[in-house]
Design a protein around this nucleic acid. Sequence first.
DNA 1: CGCGATTTAATTGTGTACAATGCAATTGTA
DNA 2: TACAATTGCATTGTACACAATTAAATCGCG
Lengths: 143, 143
Amino acid sequence: MADKYDRLKLDNQLCFPLYACSKEVVRRYKPYLDKIGLTYTQYITMMVLWEKGEIGVKALGERLYLDSGTLSPLLKTLEKKGLLERKRDEEDERNLIVRITKKGLALRDEAVDIPLKMGACLNIDAEEAQTLYRILHKLMSDF
Amino acid sequence: MADKYDRLKLDNQLCFPLYACSKEVVRRYKPYLDKIGLTYTQYITMMVLWEKGEIGVKALGERLYLDSGTLSPLLKTLEKKGLLERKRDEEDERNLIVRITKKGLALRDEAVDIPLKMGACLNIDAEEAQTLYRILHKLMSDF
DNA sequence: CGCGATTTAATTGTGTACAATGCAATTGTA
DNA sequence: TACAATTGCATTGTACACAATTAAATCGCG
């Protein structure tokens, strides 16, 4: 019963489960992230800052695959929350540096259990998770 | 060098590559979708209509994992483009039915090559694609 | 050195996503 | 059969995403 439109069926797409799973996982983070007052995008931004302490907006965008249209307002929001500081690079005034604050660093202790809680609520075993991780990273090596 | 914050590192997340790959794949569709005047979300909506001809908004939302807040304006946009008609179910006026138009059906011929073109521009072989598909669908079975 | 090209963040405009709320139609039940 | 509960789409408000444009700072070449 193959017809020339078979490839256009939703069930035959790889993009759609990727898109649907991504949204669902973000949705499942929400209850935990609400408790610490972050959105998902703010959370991955804080992850980078927890690890690096400070970073330029350009490098941050490359790490998160986000551009300034997304990051500029988001970083201002996080500054308003007192989690980071924004300052111009004195060497080159074009660059904006974001640096984590004490309050931002303290938030890490409230976030530390989130990854385990999330893992527990996903229907995936360790081996499949690792396979998924590997394939997705291989895809990303091409971006 | 393991510390208690290791799980909070971006590189140790499964959610992040999922999120990044999903966005990147949608971004790569854009040049092809621009040619037929659809966004990605409009494209997957049309996929359902190409297959089913007509469907209620509730069932459409369940199929795409989207709610009325997303679908209501999107379906009005597609109606304005002349690709579908919106009408109330005469049996139960609460239900809105969307039905594809001739113009909407004709668009399928312009879209038919998109899945192959997309497949060609992703750095993934057939076996990995199948594994990825299987794992993501297993995840989705839980939504 | 002067000045056009490049780099970088910010802004603007469009289109999702989704929680929360509103509201009209229908259903279930006393 | 009233009427409270439920259902289903629409609306509102918030927050991304990202393309395109702008504007300021720096670079590089003649």
